[in-house]
């Protein structure tokens, strides 16, 4: 299924003009976690089901529009209902919907299962930066929009965003996690509602003041994955990216040591300004 899909999309993409900098991205990228792949497959499944239905329905419409034109001397028939037909096109959609609901429910159950995780990070949203706290490792720091992006994004800054690497998707201190480990994220917020989202992990959840939400992911490739705050949280909602740096276990451990040794970054981050006005 997914294969066919990808080929199809590759085809679509290839058929588009591609500039030097252009990313004529058409579809949801396949992520680097089991969940994100399941979600992507689900997304493609419903997408294609809709395409098929669309072809059928629009086909019928276009046929009627072309075939029964008055200008072509079409004379109207007189039928105005058919119980059989109506029953059919009530039942078929129901069947299709069930076919969609089953895999969806299965995936959902999997997503909600946050048990036996290897690492727990508490994420707190503030206007407008994230605070990460490794509950058992006694490490905590703020993560704020990178200086370069922040300078460029000021009103009429004169800086061309295209010259900024990872414009608006870069932070001073990314969240660092080990590859292949089930990371449990506890979400809450200090002021207003925010939402923590990394597309490559297929996960998005609201960070709500006074309450704690949970999500989990297990990244199976090292690398840096970028997302954004996904709930309107005021003036700089567009400027509090989420960056996760997935490292090999060794790199992660050494990074952790560094932090626990009270590396400057931690304190620096602690006092980082919410936004550079």
């Amino acid at each position: 299924m997914v294969k066919i899909v990808n080929c199809a999309l590759a085809g679509l993409l290839a058929s588009l003009p591609v500039h030097s900098f252009a990313a004529w991205e058409l579809n949801m990228p396949v992520g680097v976690t089991e969940l994100s792949r399941r979600i992507h497959a689900l997304h493609m499944l419903i997408f294609w089901i809709c395409v098929v239905i669309a072809i059928a329905v629009f086909g019928a419409m276009i046929y009627s529009i072309v075939k029964f034109r008055r200008s072509q001397g079409a004379v109207p028939a007189s039928f105005d209902h058919s119980t059989r037909a109506e029953i059919i096109w009530t039942i078929i959609p129901i069947v299709i919907l069930v076919a969609m609901a089953v895999p969806a429910a299965a995936t959902l159950v999997r997503i909600e299962d946050t048990r036996n995780s290897d690492l727990t990070v508490k994420v707190t949203g503030y206007q407008w930066r994230w605070h990460y706290e490794y509950l058992d490792q006694k490490v905590a720091f703020f993560s704020t929009l990178a200086r370069e992006s922040n300078a460029a994004r000021q009103l009429r800054s004169g800086v061309d965003p295209k010259t900024v690497t990872n414009y608006l998707l870069d932070v001073d201190h990314p969240l660092v996690v080990p590859v292949g480990k089930k990371v449990r994220v506890l979400l809450t917020a200090g002021d207003v509602i925010h939402a923590w989202w990394v597309p490559a992990f297929g996960m998005k959840k609201d960070a709500i003041p006074g309450f704690v939400n949970e999500l989990w992911f297990r990244a199976d490739q090292t690398g840096i994955y970028r997302g954004q705050c996904a709930e309107l949280c005021g003036r700089d909602h567009g400027f509090m990216p989420v960056v996760v740096d997935v490292r090999s276990q060794e790199d992660y451990d050494s990074w952790l040591k560094e932090q626990q040794a009270g590396a400057p970054t931690a304190q620096a981050a602690g006092t980082a300004p919410a936004t550079a006005e």
Partner: peptide, 19 residues
């Protein structure tokens, strides 16, 4: 949206520029 552009933002990464 599918490529990951959040709503209610006044500015965005260059990957979203074309569309």
């Amino acid at each position: 949206g599918l490529a990951g552009m959040p709503r209610r933002i006044p500015d965005y990464n260059t990957q979203f520029a074309d569309w």
